[in-house]
Nucleic acid binder design. Structure first.
Length: 246
RNA sequence: CCCUGUUCACUGGGGUA
């Protein structure tokens, strides 16, 4: 079954869900009983493809086969449902999860926080953050990344920067490349290329390596601002830092 | 006995309105 899972996962990841489902059928036809992971993998693949109805069908089959979905499986579905604007269904699955005795973990809370914050409901997001901590889960760089990104999306850049500075100043959760990318991209879109470049310098100070994403955001902004010279300087810098363009 | 198979935050492009 592990081989089947790996095969199904491989096809899902290259976006060939159809082939993955065929393999599932073959597996059943050949008399192999799918284990929970086969279902998990298919559910994740369908979810990644945004095919939530089919994912939910397999989820039902999984339960009908006598398996108890694990936390990760619930997390997959909840995130997928939020991403496809099915928040009601996501909450429904979340409740089912709690009833089934599958304890929400840090990822579950990060997903909820990201959803509420992006929707502009920071009150609810902070509430979930408190609950998360109360339940014994430690907020991570992902948690703060979700909040910072959401502040940016909701035109609350000051709060995004404030939270960033809070992280930067404390030694608990150090900002990583993604955090910088979120802010750099946000500033670029606000046409504050100067401050974005400043953050890039700060990355160097902090020993955080820029990625292709970092440069892409800046190139786009420089192109739009017609700052060609800066663009060339940045290319040099990209080469020097050993970042491959994508 | 151990390891390994499912999840969360960042870019861009295209389609329909």
């Amino acid at each position: 079954a592990v081989s089947y899972t790996a095969l199904i996962d491989a096809f899902c990841k290259v976006n060939n869900i159809g082939r993955a489902m065929e393999i599932f059928d073959e597996m059943v036809k050949d008399g192999f009983a799918p284990d929970a992971y086969v279902y998990y993998t298919l559910i994740a693949g369908l979810t990644r493809a945004g095919r939530m109805n089919e994912a939910l069908t397999f989820f039902q089959t999984l339960k009908d086969s006598g398996f108890s979905p694990d936390v990760v499986c619930y997390n997959v579905l909840i995130a997928g449902l939020f991403n496809t604007n099915k928040a009601d269904k996501a909450h429904e699955i979340f409740e089912e999860m709690e009833k089934a005795g599958a304890r929400p973990d840090g990822v579950t809370y990060n997903t909820l926080i990201a959803y509420h914050a992006k929707s502009g409901n920071f009150t609810e997001a902070r509430k979930q953050l408190k609950k998360m901590v109360r339940e014994g889960h430690v907020p991570t760089v992902v948690t703060y990344g979700a909040l910072i990104h959401a502040y940016c999306l909701n035109e609350r850049v000051n709060e995004a920067m404030a939270l960033f500075k809070e992280l930067r100043g404390s030694s608990k959760v150090a900002p990583n490349g993604v955090i910088y990318n979120i802010l750099i991209d946000c500033l670029c879109k606000k046409d504050d290329v100067q401050q974005a470049l400043g953050l890039m310098d700060d990355m160097e100070v902090k020993g955080v390596k820029p990625s292709a994403n970092t440069f892409n955001s800046l190139f786009r902004a420089l192109r739009e601002a017609k700052m060609v010279q800066k663009g060339f300087e940045l290319m040099d810098r990209m080469v020097k830092q050993g970042v491959n363009p994508d």
